[in-house]
Every structure is written in C-alpha cells, then in structure tokens.
Design a protein around this nucleic acid. Structure first.
Ligand code: MN
Length: 540
DNA sequence: TGGTCATCAG
DNA sequence: TTCACACGGTCAC
DNA sequence: GACCGTGTGTCTCTGATGACCAGC
C-alpha cells in the first residue's frame, strides 16, 4: 500500500475550509453562470457567523434535505440552537415542529414511529415499509414534535461540486483523502480562466442528466428493469456539445439495451438511432438481423465499415458483414489470420489457473508476473508522464485529477501532437528515463500507473527485454485508442535470459476475447514473443 | 442479538 | 455511477 | 463459432455507527 497507513491530522474546521475553497473557485471561475439564487445564497452564507456556517455545511454534505435538531452531534459547534436560529433568520433553512407526514415518516426510525403513533394498531414485528404504509392509511398528520425539524432551503452543493470539479463523480471527500495523505496528486498549475461550461443551459442539462442516470441505476439495482420504460420519455434530445452528447448517449444506450432485452424492439431502435456512440449501430444491425431484415442490417454494417468509431466497431462490422455475406447481402472482408502460437498443457488446478500457469513457466526458468494490463499501462503512464500532466488549457480544472480531462478524447493527441512525436523519438534513443520517472513520481496518482501493483523490478525487466522500437510500437498502439487499448493485454508477462514473453492464459471453458486477439497478433507482428496457453485438467 | 447494509467522519 | 475479465449457457451452421 | 447474461473482484480510503431485520 502506497503510504496508506500514514494519515495526517486534519485542521479542526477542515470541512469549512474545503467548502470555502469550492465557493471561492466557483465564484471567480463562473461569476456569469451562477443563477441569482446561487449568488444570493453565497452572499448570505458568507454573512453568517461561523457556527451557522459549520452547521449548514454539515447538513449540505449529508444525504437528504431534512434533519432533526435532536440528532445533531457536532461538538465543534458551540450552540446548535443559535446556529439553527441564525440559519432560519437568513432563510437558508426552514424550521418546523410539525413536518408533513411523509417527511416525518422518513426522518424517524421504526421504534420512534411505533411510539409516535402508538394510538394506531401497529405491529412491532412488521417491516418498516409496512408500518409506513399503515400510518399513511390511518393517520392524517404527524403529531407536534418536541424537537425541531430543519429543511435545507437550497440544494446548492451539487451545482457547486459540478462547477468546481468539472464532473459529477468527485465530492468534498477528495479534499479529505488528499489531506490525510491517502492520495497524492501531481501538481499542475490551474488557470482560473479555464472553464468547462460556457452557458448556463449546459450546467442545467448536465445536472438533469446526472439525476436521470442516478434514477436509472437505482431501478437497475432494484432489479426492476421493466421500470426503465418510464424513463424513456424523459431522456433529452441529442446535444451538440460533446461532453453532454457523450453523457447522454451512454445513458440512451443503456436504456435502449434494456428495452431490447425486454423485447421492446421498436422503442429500442427509436432510441439507438439517436445515439452516435457504440454500440448503438451494432445493436441496430443485430436487431435488424434477428428480425430477418437483411437489407436494413446491411445498411448499418456498411455505415460502420465506412466510418468506424474505433477499431472495435470496425471489427464488429467486419464480423457482421461476414454473417450477412452468407445471405448474399453484402461482400465482406476476409477474416484475418491469427499469427500467434497456441500452447496446450494439462495442469492440476489447485488455485487460479493464472497462478498455476505462472508456476509452470517458473519451472522453465522464467521470472513471471501476473499483471494483465498493469505493466504496459504503467510503462506508458511513466514514459509520457509530463505530457499527460502538461498544463494544456482546460485539461486540469481541479487539484485532484489522475489524468487530464481530455485523456480519452481525440483532442488529447491533437493538442499534444508535437511533444508526443518527439517523446517517441526520444524513446528510440533511450528508455532509462522511465525508471527515473518511476522514482521521482512514486506514489502520485496517475490513471495509468497503479503503484501498489507494479514494482520497479517489473518495470526495469520490461525495459530491459523489450527493444526500444517494440516499446514505441506498444505506446503508439495505446496512444491510438487510449480508452480501448488500455485493456486486453495478456495475463502473464515473463522474462528469461534477456528475452520477454506475454502469455494469455485460458482455462477450461474460457475463450480468447476479441481485444485479446488483437493484442496477441500485434505483439507477434512487432516481433514480441506472445502466445496463448490453453490449460486443461489432466486425465487420471 | 448477531449479521448486513447504508451512511458518515476524518 | 464501474470496469475488466471469466464462466457457462444457447443457438445456428 | 458467435453471442449473450451473469458472476467476481475491484485498481477511487477505512473504520465507526446506527438502522433494519431475521432468528432465537
Ligand atoms: Mn486469461
């Protein structure tokens, strides 16, 4: 574990400091995009005394809008009572002792509800949802409570987080895990003029889409896939702005795939045709094919062949074309022949087949690592470290990034074309700097380098056994499609006598995946020893 | 009352 | 708002 | 052989606490 055991103490009011960092950044980066409500909220917040600020940030960083005065336990806030009063006076919260019934039901535990509504014939053994139903049926309202309930008036945190981080995945705990020393981030100069959003409508659409995606995942998690039908009409129309278009099409593809599984082929098609993101065209072709509409399927396949989104979509189209050509609908490119070796062996499987196979090669004198994608990705992340973290405008929006915002977008290459080319040329001459980078950057978060899983001996073994040209070829392949070519690497990497070998392990019943085949063929074309090992159980 | 899960804190 | 991979099944050829 | 759905570990922290439930 990289330093994870060492945790630094946090300053006493760390969460208020962190919240202020966000407010300050957001209001200086996006003064023109904040709504009137948000600007006034910030002004009102800053005018509060510190205890009231503390309590409000505590509430904002918790789930839900409703809280109970009697349940607060914040020793750092001198008077909860005074803080609540001040927040209520500023209209930042509203306060009541008689909340509506549904709120009361949500903020009380089951034992509390049994006591609160003891005049109703409730069964203590019933589950909470049943008790809630029962109370809803028989009680008109909630009795007046001996404590106050507080509702946060404006749920401003999601907007501020989105504007600060530039995504809807990171939150206030980024500050904490970083300050505790659990994560260490590369320092990249941030420019306050760099903005992700340029219109308010982009922010609102983003938040709406995030909420919709949340809802979608909740329905999927609750195993009620049929309910996704209710989401369909709330999906937004396609966007021109790429970040929103991508986010939208991912959700559309997921929903459409569920509709397809539910047998709602027409509805699925209706959605897929609005999505430019794979696998939309593939699904359209397959749906047409399964309905025996060969013409239509051929149309989508031809479309994919003419302008494939990436290597994967191109291969899928070629396979589909071969299926269609049997029906005489289209002429298909021939199947490419595999050029890697296939080795077969019978081994007794006492643990994971990859481990057993690693021992099998160790007995032959190899030094073996079961590292899958880790080794090539780490080499790439190290060799291109300063390019990945170069302060390109708009690429770094917050101090907690493991990669630039455009790492997996076409712009990554376009904006860095020259430095990438000159780095590749450098690597042709020497690769020793990669190990230096390993030492200098050890522990710093990088999307490509998982320090706890890739040790220095592995990195130097790879550098010593792959030729510079082979390394360049691997990097070019990763650079070509950063998103897809960071996976599919063989299970085992091994070295012996200054040579290396990649081996993908296939146990009984396991088959090569398409991207694994692409990598194996690529290695062999580059003169790198790569093969698949088929392991079977010995017959007794 | 012990196990599981969600939530919160640092 | 998850991803990569393995596994086991079906279907058609 | 091709495709599909599902399971598994996980590589976005770790431990404490409380709510809930089932079983005794
Ligand atoms: Mn394998």
């Amino acid at each position: 574990m990289t330093d994870a055991t060492v945790t630094n103490p946090l300053p006493p009011l760390y969460y208020l400091d962190n919240f202020y960092s966000i407010l300050d950044t957001v209001s200086s980066r996006y003064p023109d995009l904040l709504t009137r409500t948000e600007s006034e909220w910030i002004a009102a917040f800053k005018a509060l005394a510190q205890p009231a600020q503390l309590l409000l940030v505590r509430m904002l960083s918790r789930k839900g809008n409703w809280f109970r005065e009697d349940k607060f336990n914040y020793p750092e806030i001198p008077s909860i009572d005074a803080a609540i009063n001040e927040l209520a006076t500023s209209s930042l919260v509203s306060v009541t002792s008689s909340p509506t019934l549904d709120v009361a039901l949500a903020i009380h535990t089951k034992p509390e509800l049994l006591q609160l509504f003891d005049s109703l014939p409730l069964k203590a053994s019933a589950k909470k949802p049943e008790i809630v139903d029962e109370i809803m049926r028989h009680a008109g309202s909630c009795p007046v409570l001996p404590y106050r309930c507080i509702e946060v008036s404006h749920d401003v945190l999601p907007v501020f987080l989105l504007l600060y981080f530039g995504n809807s995945r990171q939150n206030l705990s980024e500050f904490v895990v970083s300050d505790l020393g659990i994560y260490h981030y590369e320092t990249v100069p941030l420019n306050i003029k760099d903005r992700l959003f340029n219109e308010r409508s982009q922010i609102d659409a983003w938040l709406a889409l995030s909420n919709l995606a949340d809802e979608y995942w909740e329905t999927v998690e609750s195993k009620q896939r049929a309910k996704v039908r209710e989401l369909v009409c709330r999906l937004p129309e396609p966007f021109d702005w790429p970040p929103l278009a991508y986010k939208r099409n991912r959700l559309v593809n997921a929903v459409a795939r569920d509709l397809e599984r539910l047998g709602d082929i027409d509805a699925a098609e209706f959605l897929f045709v609005t999505s430019a993101l794979p696998p939309a065209k593939e699904r359209l072709a397959r749906m047409a094919l399964s309905q025996n509409d060969v013409e239509k399927a051929a149309g989508y396949v031809a479309d994919m062949l003419a302008s494939p989104y990436n290597e994967e979509e191109k291969e899928i189209a070629e396979r589909l074309a071969r299926q269609l050509s049997k029906k005489g609908a289209i002429d298909a490119p021939a199947k490419t022949k595999n050029v890697f070796e296939e080795e077969c062996v019978a081994l007794t499987l006492t643990q994971r087949v990859e481990m057993i196979s690693a021992d099998y090669y160790r007995e032959q004198g190899w030094q073996v690592w079961y590292c899958e994608n880790l080794v090539l990705n780490a080499l790439f992340g190290l060799a291109f470290w300063d390019i990945i973290f170069s302060p390109i405008s708009g690429a770094f929006l917050n101090p907690f990034q493991r990669s630039p915002k455009d790492m997996y977008l076409p712009e990554f290459i376009e904006s860095r074309e020259d430095v990438i080319q000159s780095r590749l040329a450098d690597i042709r001459e020497n690769t020793a700097f990669v190990l230096d980078t390993y030492e200098q950057k050890y522990g710093l978060a990088n999307d490509w380098v998982y320090w706890d899983y890739v040790d220095k001996t592995l990195i130097s073994a790879a550098l010593n056994t792959l030729s510079n040209d082979q390394l360049i070829a691997c990097f070019e392949r990763i650079l070509f499609d950063r998103k897809n070519n960071r996976s599919g690497h063989p299970d085992l990497f091994m070295t012996k006598d200054g040579k290396c070998r990649f081996v993908e392990i296939k146990g009984p019943g396991d088959k090569l995946q398409h991207h694994q085949i692409r990598w194996l063929n690529f290695f062999v074309e580059q003169g790198i020893d790569a093969r698949v090992l088929y392991v079977s159980q010995p017959q007794d």
